[in-house]
Design a protein around this nucleic acid. Sequence first.
DNA 1: GCGAATTTTTAGGCGCACCTAAAAGTGCCA
DNA 2: TGGCACTTTTAGGTGCGCCTAAAAATTCGC
Lengths: 240, 240
Amino acid sequence: MSIPEPVARRTQPNADSAAEDYLKTIYHHTEWQSAPVTPSVLAATMGVAPSSVTEMAKKLSAAGLVNYEPYKPLTLTAEGTARARGVIRRHRLIETWLVDEMGYDWHEVHDEAEVLEHSISDRLLDAIDSRLGHPTRDPHGDPIPSADGSVESSPALLLSQAAIGTSGMVVRISDRDPSLLLSLAAAGIRPSTTLSVVSRDASTGFIVRVAGATESDADGGPLVPVSASGGSSIWISAPA
Amino acid sequence: MSIPEPVARRTQPNADSAAEDYLKTIYHHTEWQSAPVTPSVLAATMGVAPSSVTEMAKKLSAAGLVNYEPYKPLTLTAEGTARARGVIRRHRLIETWLVDEMGYDWHEVHDEAEVLEHSISDRLLDAIDSRLGHPTRDPHGDPIPSADGSVESSPALLLSQAAIGTSGMVVRISDRDPSLLLSLAAAGIRPSTTLSVVSRDASTGFIVRVAGATESDADGGPLVPVSASGGSSIWISAPA
DNA sequence: GCGAATTTTTAGGCGCACCTAAAAGTGCCA
DNA sequence: TGGCACTTTTAGGTGCGCCTAAAAATTCGC
Ligand SMILES: [Mn+2]
Ligand SMILES: [Mn+2]
Ligand SMILES: [Mn+2]
Ligand SMILES: [Mn+2]
């Protein structure tokens, strides 16, 4: 007859996933290019109003995660950086798991990871990490921060900033645009593919030569067009 | 120089996970025992104030998921039942996955599933379901609703309601109390274990005899004490 | 069948993460 | 150096899911 136990079920639904997304986005902006992260930039990236950024900036500042002074760009504190890397670690391990074990293709994983990164426990994250053998790169070539917070950074060059004739290995491709990922996969372009820049035109886009999987295909594989926006989504290894 | 794309990142954090938990809890109350689900009962189970239940009841009623009339018990509409089963399907498949593939023990999975049940996509749920071979029972013996919404129900008897001398197979053990699960596992009691009720005392608890894994151990295995609350957490198959 | 105890609903608030509109600050450049 | 465009902050407001306290309805014991 006992009432079914007042189970303290209120595991708060989603903790502070909004805050986590702000931290992650601030970190992201400094990860590859490093322009100052102003409220307007952050607002545009996150799809919120600038005033929302100001509000959150104050909260994160009060929590010691963000350095905020009115009218100045936002930066992460050491603690904020650590937290951001934690979220990114989750995101990328989840993406890797989805591709390696759950039959997802690389263009399908971003949105799922965007949600799960806030829900998964440390325990489960560790289990995934172990199963995958502690990977250091996600399916898009992004480095996976290690559990202790260190990140392997490889210097890279945006395709849009490479001179004609430059060649290098694809290091990383932004996972934000699924259709780009789909078309690049079709063209055989993935992290570790070797490319060379054949032509570039700010408006039209680029043409790259894709080296075959084997080195034998010496003087070049197929020519592939890459849109202008694709050019700002592909990083190649910086020439030595 | 382009601003980093106004990605419509607002995948709403957690959809309506609160609503899902209400539906699930209402369903739960009718799944094993069927007392009327009043606001006070629901409030106690969910750990919220009764007034919160009334409010949510109105919302769910407006959404066509719950039948609500002031001062009457809540019931689920057909649509509400379907939704509840969907959440429960997610919950139990996640639990099964955690135990079968991720190295969790059965007493550790409930809380993780409580969160993930609201975050996982249909796509991922299907992938998990396939990997596991479309299981029909979770680690605690609870039936997993199928994708089309049907549920296999096996008539069962609460240990606390079984007469002395009754024996039967454990069909299901509530997953709400991890410490109970831990001690039952230590005593070798799991779904499909055969038990017989040796003694019962409403206040002290119960003593059950656990049959060995093999039938050979005919006239009985070890005697195990079960607390009073444990008695309301273990279901055994109803005698034929 | 009536009053008291209990349950349920209503009323009014709170924090969160968002918004729009208005005010204030910054910085460029004529 | 002053004006003006642009950015940022402030002010005030919304919906959600929760709360407490008070009011209303129901139920139960006599
Ligand atoms: Mn996210
Ligand atoms: Mn990625
Ligand atoms: Mn839940
Ligand atoms: Mn279970």
